[in-house]
């Protein structure tokens, strides 16, 4: 047998395909599948979350607040006339008796924001108290958070974020350890799409808040002034960091104001009336 030198042809052991095409195909497939799982599981999680009993919600809230508070402990105000006023005077008039009961946590920081956690824990930053000019304004912001609580929005969000977290853990451990950046890339996108209340949830909360405030004061005057002032500052949201915190968790103010004005017109609400001043503190 005679040996004839011959080169082995290329493209047998190596697929002749550019690596970027393979990579792109993988990314697109995985993103699509994850999104599908995220939305369907998220929907199920929400559906389950709103079936949770008040007692369980209270327990979940306890766990959440005890894990969040240490990070904020330096700024939590425990004995403060403003806290008493919020907890004892303003909140009961807006929310009445609730299950689980609502608890205000006052945080000493210039951030202008308020938030609600599962279990009826309302976080109020002192920056908000300095920014509002009447009780009507403050009542609307609080009533908005109370409305989120009544619609069980924080529980829905918790359900969704648990799904997000599990998905990320699966992605993070299913893939190699060195892909640390990938899960956070996914979670950043996730924060943008999933971990905010939807426009519908915000609008429903706004509508209930306004109707609540009107029931309490007999009119909707001044209630929206805080937002009108915010709307004026909106174009410079990049520079005003303390102001822009509110926008990062809430939809554009001008849109919200327009929707509320429209609603007031339809329902025939009185949108002017006497101002209720804030107590001196």
């Amino acid at each position: 047998m005679k040996y004839t030198p011959k080169l082995i042809p290329e493209g047998i052991n190596v697929t002749p395909q550019p690596p970027l095409i393979d990579f792109g195909y993988l990314i697109v497939t995985i993103v699509l599948i994850s999104a599908l799982i995220f939305f369907s599981l998220g929907w199920i999680a929400e559906w389950l979350a709103i079936k949770i009993s008040a007692a369980t919600e209270s327990k979940i809230g306890q766990i959440l607040i005890s894990s969040t508070m240490p990070a904020l402990s330096s700024s939590v105000l425990l004995a403060d006339p403003r806290l008493d006023y919020l907890q004892e005077n303003l909140l009961p008039t807006l929310a009445g008796e609730t299950q689980p009961p609502l608890t205000v946590h006052l945080l000493d920081d210039d951030m202008i924001n308020a938030a609600i956690l599962p279990g009826g824990h309302i976080l109020v930053w002192t920056g908000l108290l300095k920014a509002v000019q009447s009780e009507n304004e403050l009542a609307f912001v609080l009533a908005h958070e109370v409305a989120h609580f009544k619609h069980r929005d924080p529980l829905r969000m918790l359900g969704r974020s648990l799904v997000m977290l599990s998905l990320l853990t699966v992605l993070g451990t299913g893939v190699n350890q060195e892909m640390a950046g990938l899960p956070s890339l996914v979670s950043q996108t996730g924060e943008l799409i999933g971990l905010q209340y939807s426009r519908q949830q915000e609008q429903a909360a706004d509508e209930e808040a306004l109707s609540n405030v009107i029931q309490h004061y007999g009119h909707g005057g001044q209630a929206l002034d805080f937002f009108k002032r915010l709307a004026e500052q909106e174009p410079q949201r990049g520079r005003e960091l303390t102001i822009s915190r509110y926008f990062s968790t809430h939809p554009p103010t001008i849109e919200r104001l327009a929707q509320l004005a429209q609603l007031a017109k339809v329902r025939g609400w009185t949108m002017t009336g006497a101002i209720t001043p804030l107590p001196r503190w």
Binding site: Q17, F23, L26, I30, I33, L171, G174, V175, N176, M179
Partner: peptide, 16 residues
């Protein structure tokens, strides 16, 4: 490595 890691999730030829 990343390419192959992603491939681990869906299966198939690890072209990378």
């Amino acid at each position: 490595t990343i390419s192959a890691g992603l491939r681990n999730l869906v299966g198939g030829r690890v072209m990378a």
